[in-house]
Design a protein around this nucleic acid. Structure first.
Lengths: 213, 213, 213, 213
DNA sequence: TATGAATGAGTTTTCATTCAT
DNA sequence: TATGAATGAAAACTCATTCAT
């Protein structure tokens, strides 16, 4: 029942909505907030200039909406794995990592938008973003080490440290392949995820030796 | 003796060249390519507007030159450590990592320029950049595992894989602390490098158990 | 039974008509023709956007209608005093002047609209206005000196000239206090009218000496 | 030696400057600040869009400059009559009035700009104007009754009041003929000034009887 | 060679008006 | 008949680039 400032946009047919959103995502992902052009967006989306502003009010509001949308799409993915919590540390983190990798593979443009949003963006926009997306971040946090089977760990190993190391490895891999995902198709991307998973298991094998009894 | 399109710039006194370059680096790092203002640059550099274009021809050419310069400065650092190659894998990679960390600590602005250059930049610029800087990347590669003391490794461990894992950890850490470096002074940055090194050694300890006999 | 282009508007209930008119008067008086917003008007009036244009056809036609209405309201006041004609010239003109002053005091917004309508308005609008309101001006003229007690006048004084001088004084005073009326409440305005009347009588005293025996 | 923000404009040839100024004066006088269009100005002036903003920076700054210019031109006229101070009150005020009338006759558009500037203009502009033009107003004030030959006055007449009455008459006349001046040529305007002066003397004759012995 | 005045294509945004229902 | 979603022409302003000197 709450009115959003975006109601004009949200009541149009889903198909049109998607087409327009895609145009925005593409433009903002490619050029960032400032150098993205509303002219380019309306051209891509095939809508008149006035209509864009009728829907979103301003470029800033449009950007915030689009990023919000991206965050929501991303968060939904994580929410899906809420129940899934393998008791083995490696499997647990690998599973989470794969979800993220698959998202990047399937939605490389959307992820790029998300990735850039918190980096190259005017301060005022960044502040606004933080306050909007803070809740999602909080919701998706959750403890990584809770309910783990600790019996396998060597006594002198801090499980939190171990988790951090594994996470670092996963993040390093994501970062390493990020550029590649941007350049290939989602199909190729999903194949790449398999490849990365395999690579990952090799590293995990090494670490496992150092952590487990 | 090949003519560069930058000869007008390169024949002026080194001192002036440096002042102008610094003005450009600052502006581009702070605002990104598109939002950076040539007006702001000439003001910072204390040169007439026309002169900037006399030197560099266009904003795009200027940006490419500046990024190229940054890449060169970065690469030079790596070249310096050519001789230094500890025979222990962890020490070797940690040493290389520290060089990079220190560069980021000491030149956060320059690094930011470099980092952004491949992310938030118009496609045409990005393409141009890749073709220009590819050669440097290739040149600075070098084998990580050459001349290592392999006697300590467990037989079933591939040293290349081990090196990759360690490198991944280091890259993950850089990524994790990048934002912080951008916000602190070089002095504080160097202190942070020590802290990160300590954190790194903890992770290495875990990995070492899994790799060494 | 001539059809006006405003018939759609004029057939709605008088109450609604008044509410809509007031909204228009307020908006046009405050912001002038061009800067006045039809959005603001429909909001104030509580009617749908399309309905405003259904009623009036265009912003220009709306404005002309509203000004016309204001002119009519103003003229009606003058018509009311048709019977009242003191035989003393000063009293007669002062009486007429007070009617005008009181109108300004009581309807500062309406008068402002009227005043502005002939000054700051696009040429085409102004031309249209003149042709429409000319008739009213003519109708409200009437002789100022008819039925006067001429016995008090010095022989060498032309009563028409004397009347014109007095009128000039009154007009000068209105002009002088116009801005003040716009800034105060109708209540304060009526007090100001008393004050102006007093000032007026002082001037009249001087003139009386020059005109009467 | 003081730098003005208008130096870019002020260093161009006087001929061009005048042409541009005239275009601005015309547009602003006709439409007022808000509804004046910078597009229309550049078209009238025959200069590119960017050049207007290169010269003046913003529409607001342009408007302030133009009004300032008008005020200066107006004030200069008054300054010329500094020495001229007939000792007869009527002659003194008539003389001043004629200067004003002639200005209006010769520069009807400029005067219209001036007249509107303090009436129909956004608050922020009006404030700025007041602070800029205050000094001129102050400078041109001067006592109206100083050095008058008071011997001719009847004892019960306050010379200040008498002066105020005469001034009111002159202002009333200006107001009465303002619209006419706007519609005729400067040549016709000067003829009209003579006519008004004659009319004025008739009124003065009446007042004189009431004021002088 | 070196310059800075001048430019015009580009930017975001507003809002009176239309038209399908 | 009455509506409100949709529009496009116009607004003010920016800035990399050019070119006469």
């Amino acid at each position: 029942m709450t009115k959003t400032p975006y109601e004009n946009f949200e009541k149009i047919p889903a198909e049109d909505r998607q087409r327009i959103l895609n145009a925005c995502i593409e433009e903002f992902a490619q050029h960032g907030y400032r150098q993205a052009s509303t002219n380019a967006i309306v051209k891509k989306a095939g809508i008149p200039k006035g209509t864009l502003f009728y829907f979103f009010g301003s470029k800033k509001a449009l950007y915030l909406y689009v990023v919000d949308h991206a965050v929501r799409r991303f968060t939904v993915r994580y929410a899906e794995l809420a129940g899934e919590m393998p008791s083995d540390l490696f499997e647990r983190l690998l599973y989470r990592g794969q979800v993220k990798f698959r998202f990047v593979a399937e939605q490389p443009v959307l992820f790029r938008l998300l990735y850039n949003a918190f980096i190259h963006t005017p301060q005022e926009i960044r502040d606004e973003l933080r306050s909007r997306t803070g809740e999602y971040a909080a919701a998706s946090a959750g403890s990584l080490t809770e309910g783990l089977d600790l019996s396998k760990f060597r006594e002198d190993v801090d499980p939190e440290k171990a988790a951090a190391l594994i996470q670092l490895t996963l993040d390093g891999l994501l970062n390493k392949y990020l550029g590649t995902f941007q350049q290939i198709s989602p199909t190729e991307g999903l194949a790449l995820v398999e490849q990365i998973t395999a690579e990952c298991r090799e590293y995990f094998e090494l670490i496992r030796h150092g952590i487990y009894k």
